[in-house]
C-alpha cells in the first residue's frame, strides 16, 4: 500500500505539482466564494482564486535551466566575441556558409529564458485584480453603511418585504 501511494506521488503528483497546487488553491477560493456568509470572506476567496490562476500561468512559462526573461548584456558580449572568433577561423569557407553560421551564433537561445508571455498576461491580471478588489471593498463598505452588517443572510433578511424595514 505504501509503495502504491509512493509511486502515485512520484509519478502523478511530482511532475505536475504546480497544477495540483493551483487546483487546490483555486478550490479553496471557490469554496470560500460559494459558502462563506461574510462578504469580506467572499472577497478573500476571490483573491485566492485569482492568485491560483496567476500561479497556473506563471508556472506554465517555467523552463528548466532557464532564467528570468531579461537578456544580460554580459552574455550578449560573449555572443559577439564568439561570433567574431568563429568568423576569423572560418575565413576560408564559402561565403554563404559563413553568413548562415554567423546568424546562428547571433540567435538567442530561447531555452535559456523563461517564457515572457505568461508574465505579461499575469501582470494584466494582477492589475485588474487590484482594481476589482478595491472597488469591491468600497461597495462592501457602502453595504455595511446602509445595512449595518456584512453577513449575507442578515442583509437578505432586511431586504425581504416582510423584513425589518
Amino acid at each position: 500500500m505504501d509503495i502504491i501511494i509512493a509511486s502515485f506521488i512520484e509519478e502523478v503528483i511530482v511532475p505536475k505539482f504546480n497544477y495540483w497546487i493551483y487546483v487546490i488553491l483555486m478550490m479553496i477560493g471557490l469554496f470560500a466564494m460559494i459558502t462563506k456568509n461574510n462578504l469580506i470572506k467572499k472577497l478573500i476567496g476571490m483573491a485566492i482564486f485569482q492568485t491560483a490562476i496567476i500561479l497556473l500561468y506563471v508556472s506554465v512559462g517555467v523552463k528548466s535551466e532557464a532564467n528570468i526573461p531579461i537578456i544580460s548584456h554580459h552574455g550578449h558580449q560573449e555572443h559577439v566575441e564568439n561570433a567574431q572568433d568563429e568568423k576569423h577561423s572560418s575565413k576560408l569557407e564559402v561565403s554563404t556558409d559563413d553568413k548562415s553560421d554567423k546568424s546562428d551564433h547571433h540567435a538567442i537561445d530561447k531555452d535559456k529564458f523563461a517564457n515572457p508571455l505568461p508574465h505579461v498576461l499575469m501582470l494584466t491580471a494582477i492589475v485588474v485584480g487590484v482594481s476589482t478588489l478595491g472597488l469591491a471593498l468600497a461597495i462592501s463598505q457602502k453595504v455595511h453603511g446602509s445595512f449595518g452588517t456584512l453577513e449575507e443572510d442578515e442583509i437578505l433578511d432586511q431586504l425581504k418585504p416582510g423584513g425589518h424595514d
Binding site: P15, K16, F17, N18, S59, V60, G61, V62, K63, S64, E65, A66, P69, A107, I108, K110, D111, F113, N115, P116, L117, P118
Partner: peptide
C-alpha cells in the same frame, strides 16, 4: 510537466518570437 521546455506554450511561435 513542470519546467518542460518543449511544451506548447513555450514552443509556440509567439513567445519564441518575443524571446528571439
Amino acid at each position: 510537466d513542470w519546467g518542460d521546455q518543449d511544451s506548447p506554450a513555450n514552443e509556440g511561435p509567439v513567445s519564441s518570437f518575443y524571446i528571439e
